[in-house]
Design a protein around this nucleic acid. Sequence first.
DNA 1: TTGTACGCGTTATCAT
DNA 2: ATGATAACGCGTACAA
Lengths: 323, 323
Amino acid sequence: MIKLVGLKDIAQAAGVSISTVSNVLNGRKNVGKETRDRILQLCEEMGYQPNIMGKSLKKGQTNTIVFNFSDFERSFYLKIIKGIHDYLTENHFDLIVCTTNSSENFMRGHFTQGAIVLDRKMTDAFLVSTASSQFPIVVMDRIIENENIKSVITENYSVMCELTQTLIDKGFRKFGYIGGYESSLDHQERYQAFIDTLTMNHIPFPRTKYYHGDFSEKSGYRVTNILILSNDLPEILVCANDNMAIGAIKALRENKIEVPKDISVTGFDDSSNAENFGLTTVTIPRYESGYIAAKELVEMIRGAGNQEDFKITAKINWRETVR
Amino acid sequence: MIKLVGLKDIAQAAGVSISTVSNVLNGRKNVGKETRDRILQLCEEMGYQPNIMGKSLKKGQTNTIVFNFSDFERSFYLKIIKGIHDYLTENHFDLIVCTTNSSENFMRGHFTQGAIVLDRKMTDAFLVSTASSQFPIVVMDRIIENENIKSVITENYSVMCELTQTLIDKGFRKFGYIGGYESSLDHQERYQAFIDTLTMNHIPFPRTKYYHGDFSEKSGYRVTNILILSNDLPEILVCANDNMAIGAIKALRENKIEVPKDISVTGFDDSSNAENFGLTTVTIPRYESGYIAAKELVEMIRGAGNQEDFKITAKINWRETVR
DNA sequence: TTGTACGCGTTATCAT
DNA sequence: ATGATAACGCGTACAA
């Protein structure tokens, strides 16, 4: 077990006290030039590296925040991380990315000064008990009412209203809808917006045209095959996310039903595959979400945050699957 | 500035000494039952959280390693991270994921016990100067000769030989090839394997059938259009990665050339889009790479590592784009 | 069974 | 210009 070289070792080698070495390393002016040079030289030679824990322990702050996630299947997480990373870099904070197990350690251990939480596995109860004015938290895509927790959420509702309204304006009247998990906030908001807009326009939506999915491509494929058997194709099939829309398109193609000639399709998410299918969908600005989440968090850490949750505005991306 | 509650505060509230509290929290048997209960109760009430820095500083080890990356465009990074994460979780290590700037802090600050490095921006020189028996490093997809640095690399060569040989065995004779950046190690190894296998089988490969790409879908699309104009279609088009293969397929489809009826196509990577195109390609086990990298690193940290670099074997995934 | 004292690597205050 | 010393929060050997 080789000992790591610390201030003490440098001091000993240089024949000075620890404080002098510390002063040199922290750029204080109260050290003689030749002593300073000798010390710097020795640090180089001996490969001195400051111990981040000793430093943080003393200073009581680490300028580090943690981002917590756990779903490795969704590639847009990388965009969120990049957004967070870019803001933090500009503001001289370090970022550590963890999955839930480790995150809890780092959140509780006073090693980080705040957290951005995406993982649903981290319970509201834990977050409420962990957040404090000393340790603010930003949660993404969920809402927690707490003084020290701020939410950054995607505005599903208004963009889905806009999408539906525009489709109506284009002349569509016979709609079909594939929904996701009914427990999901995303599902609920999107579906509600869809229904509300139809209602406002006095367009009936028979419940038989609603199909249960689970956000997976397979489920979209499956229910679309059922829809096709009904022999009463809607003019347009609105899907609660891209995966299901792509599953739907595959099912339609296999049945020689052309998109958008025979039926139009829309998705939600703008996943990386959406473009390959020419899918009309809703772009959620993931990078920006991350950036904003980081910004809100840092402001809270600095004690300058306001109380309002942040809503991310999504944008419709018109492609070829809508006539 | 609210003070954080520490051992001291608990001790004071319980009317005992700090060490007694510490003993309780570390599960030692030398504390009276009623004292223990009272202390536990107070920790709960006062929301005590052990300070990870104080603890680590004392113990001299953190059981934390850092994974460094910086390219947010490639979604397979998530798979690598998951592989690393899973191994570490099984072995009671924490993982922090950082980009280059922050990583250097954590690597030097003695807060982590080792690093897995993917980012090319982190120079060989830095890595060599940072690695030690106290701080081993695993680098992915590059080779550094150093006692305390181990490489985990993808075996491009042999799998490309296998792919080419199988194609020859299937009866293909007229090959086309779309290469990537010529400076890239991936490109070089893949192309060399391709050429070597053809040569071994005495199959000529006229240089005119080689097309320059840059790994992007666009470049595949572009050069394939040129290839089509040549009016001398190969039987099979081997591409140095999936993106270019997909670009090629798009160009072929637009020209009413059917895959695989008129021409076969292969890619490399097994990107998420590959499946949608039914693309025959090479699967690089990203998850496993991460898992192995973590395993090698932990073994080095425990002083039980061997000296050899690890080569990841890729596997051919036959789909519909080859006749 | 409980408390005292020291050290981990730093920074900061106050003497010298 | 330089050094001694006290924290920061924790673990632990040893004394009481």
